[in-house]
Amino acid sequence: MDEEYDVIVLGTGLTECILSGIMSVNGKKVLHMDRNPYYGGESSSITPLEELYKRFQLLEGPPESMGRGRDWNVDLIPKFLMANGQLVKMLLYTEVTRYLDFKVVEGSFVYKGGKIYKVPSTETEALASNLMGMFEKRRFRKFLVFVANFDENDPKTFEGVDPQTTSMRDVYRKFDLGQDVIDFTGHALALYRTDDYLDQPCLETVNRIKLYSESLARYGKSPYLYPLYGLGELPQGFARLSAIYGGTYMLNKPVDDIIMENGKVVGVKSEGEVARCKQLICDPSYIPDRVRKAGQVIRIICILSHPIKNTNDANSCQIIIPQNQVNRKSDIYVCMISYAHNVAAQGKYIAIASTTVETTDPEKEVEPALELLEPIDQKFVAISDLYEPIDDGCESQVFCSCSYDATTHFETTCNDIKDIYKRMAGTAFDFENMKRKQNDVFGEAEQ
């Protein structure tokens, strides 16, 4: 370990593993360490099931009705991949897709007046949907046509809207959309967690709705994908990429100290040895004095023996409960997957309800979601602090990732990755940087 590296990475969460992969592909010498004996950090999948019970201090362990412990891979952080989103792009560019198998999530649902409705995925579904009345549908269709044709580089498509100054509230007004449709559009399509976006320039919202539609167009059922064997497969896929390009991995490796000289990182000390480096990437748990708390998320993992009611017996789905429907500031989400994804025993389902904490009784906040899941065989409640770095790391060369937020997709995580890359490399992130180099010394032969 007593060696000189360009970059040392602490923690094998998804953000850290993707950055480690990119740095290795770009010719950097990388050492990647984790104090845990497993990959994934906060974003790991726990197996066998006995391990999950232990982690949540349920000492009696799983009953026999849960089947074989080894058949379970339970995500600690519930997220899906947008089919046309940035993480899929990263997987394709790096060819990490060859280590993973994905399934399309069967449906996306939205909560309205105590019931759940399928988010329409085709024009026919939209016309048949009970989510809105006849005239509302016509106006909504006009709005969707506007979004589909919108091109930020072609003012002819703006229809009198200025993407940089017109607020989204004004765009909704222009198409005369009612409150329910606005809730549905902002939260189930643009996937905002709160209503803060309404008074911001509309460009980002329009682009988010386009991303949803384009992702949906790829597979038809929903815009989301999920990897077989759980999300823990993602960091491992990128760790393989890093290793192929010469990255060194050490799990179960305690970090005793991060060594600084004149305010700059110069190395990491572990078990009496020092590895030197020019730059350091880590998750917040490794540098508690360089991060601040930015809120909390509650996630309740529920094991069920039945599909969720009114989802047409889907073996995977997402449910969004827009905040307006339950008098909150932030949406509540449910991600459900099952034995069909090799993450649970035969006939079992895993539904994870999550939201940003707003009160001193977080469990009560998630109740509307839990009511949709009854009866629940077993619950595991996790309340996590969200951390963000206190500075950009440019001076110390210590670059810290943000905690995983309450969103049900990876777009915010990818933004964090691109942002850290830019601060480390001094140049904007470009997907081309992730391409495997042809015929290089570490390149794998085609399968």
Rank of each mutant, 00 (worst) to 15 (best):
D2F: 06
E3P: 10
E3A: 08
V7M: 06
T15W: 06
G21I: 14
N26L: 05
G27A: 05
K29Q: 00
D34C: 14
Y38A: 01
G41C: 06
S45P: 03
P48I: 08
P48L: 03
F56S: 12
L59S: 06
P62S: 09
P62T: 00
E64K: 08
N73G: 02
N73V: 01
M82I: 08
G85A: 10
L91F: 09
R98P: 08
R98H: 11
F102Y: 04
F102L: 08
K103N: 08
K115D: 08
I116F: 05
K118R: 08
P120R: 02
E125D: 07
M132V: 11
N149D: 09
E152A: 02
G160F: 01
Q164R: 12
S167T: 05
D170N: 10
V171A: 09
R173W: 07
G178K: 03
D180Y: 07
V181G: 04
F184S: 03
A190K: 15
Y192C: 10
R193Q: 14
T194L: 06
Y197R: 15
C202R: 02
L203P: 10
E204A: 00
V206D: 03
N207P: 04
K210G: 07
Y219C: 09
Y229D: 02
G232V: 09
E233N: 15
L234P: 02
S242G: 11
T248A: 06
L251I: 14
P254A: 06
V255A: 06
D256C: 12
K264W: 11
G267I: 04
S270V: 11
G272A: 05
A275Y: 14
R276H: 08
K278A: 12
P288T: 00
D289C: 05
A294D: 00
Q296W: 08
I300H: 02
I308F: 09
I308D: 13
K309E: 10
N312P: 03
N312R: 07
D313S: 13
C317G: 08
C317V: 05
C317T: 02
Q323N: 13
N327S: 09
N327P: 04
M336K: 05
M336E: 14
T360P: 11
E365T: 04
A369P: 00
E374V: 10
D377S: 13
A382S: 07
D385N: 06
D385A: 09
D391E: 02
D391N: 08
E395K: 04
E395G: 09
S396T: 12
S401C: 11
Y404C: 10
Y404N: 13
D405V: 09
T408S: 07
T408E: 14
N415S: 10
I420V: 10
K422S: 15
A425V: 09
A428D: 00
D430C: 11
V441Y: 15
G443D: 14
A445P: 13
